[in-house]
Every structure is written in C-alpha cells, then in structure tokens.
C-alpha cells in the first residue's frame, strides 16, 4: 500500500488541517483528528508542503479561517476544499495591512 499524505485537524470546528507530510496535486490527503481517528479524505488540488494547511471545505472570500478552534485570519479570496491555505489567500485580522 502506498502511504497516503496525512493532515491533522486539531479542533473539530477547524476548517483547515495541517499537513503531516507533503502532498502533491491530485493526491488524496487523509485527515486525522487530535484523538487519532480518520475523519475525512480530501483531494489536494495543488502541491502543499509539509506543515502547511489544506482547506477542508470551500471557504468564501472574507470568511474566517479556523485552526485550534480559533480564528487565525480571513480568506482574502475564495478558497476551495483541497486548496493550499497560506499567505496568498489569507489575511491576518490583526494585521490587515501585512503583505509579504
């Protein structure tokens, strides 16, 4: 069996999960909970590096990004389930002016 890419969803309300291994575009990513159970399988729509985030649901522009059960920012453009979630499509609420 080929080892599947895996991602950790830390809190049950999170709409993103953090990759525990890198994923290539088209790869199926197994989503695990903090308790260790498999809760979903999501197709990565693009390559996502290790320790970066994947969207678990479609997220509209301006919608909150939730990790650790908390808001870590808002989507600066629409994000589809399976997309890489990072600075190119998320803005800090604390620092809306931040640009890298």
């Amino acid at each position: 069996m080929i080892a599947m890419a895996r991602a950790l969803r830390i809190d049950e309300v999170d709409n993103v999960a953090t990759l525990l291994s890198q994923a290539s575009g088209g790869e199926i990513v197994e989503i695990v909970s903090g308790g260790g159970s498999i809760i979903d399988r999501v197709e990565a729509l693009e390559a996502i590096p290790f320790s970066h985030k994947i969207a678990l649901i479609d997220i509209a522009e301006g919608e909150e990004i939730i990790k650790y059960g908390e808001v870590i920012g808002v989507a600066s453009k629409p994000i589809r389930r399976g997309e890489w979630v990072h600075t190119h499509n998320v803005e800090s609420l604390r620092l809306p002016e931040r640009r890298i």
Binding site: H52, E70, G73, S92, L93, R94
Partner: peptide, 15 residues
C-alpha cells in the same frame, strides 16, 4: 515562520 507554514501571527501565537 512563514516558510514553515505559519500564515498569520494569530496562528503562530495560538500554537
């Protein structure tokens, strides 16, 4: 931090 996948300071501090 950013190369390691941290997107915002909120995410970094929550971690």
């Amino acid at each position: 931090n950013i190369e390691g996948g941290l997107t915002t300071i909120e995410e970094k501090s929550l971690g």
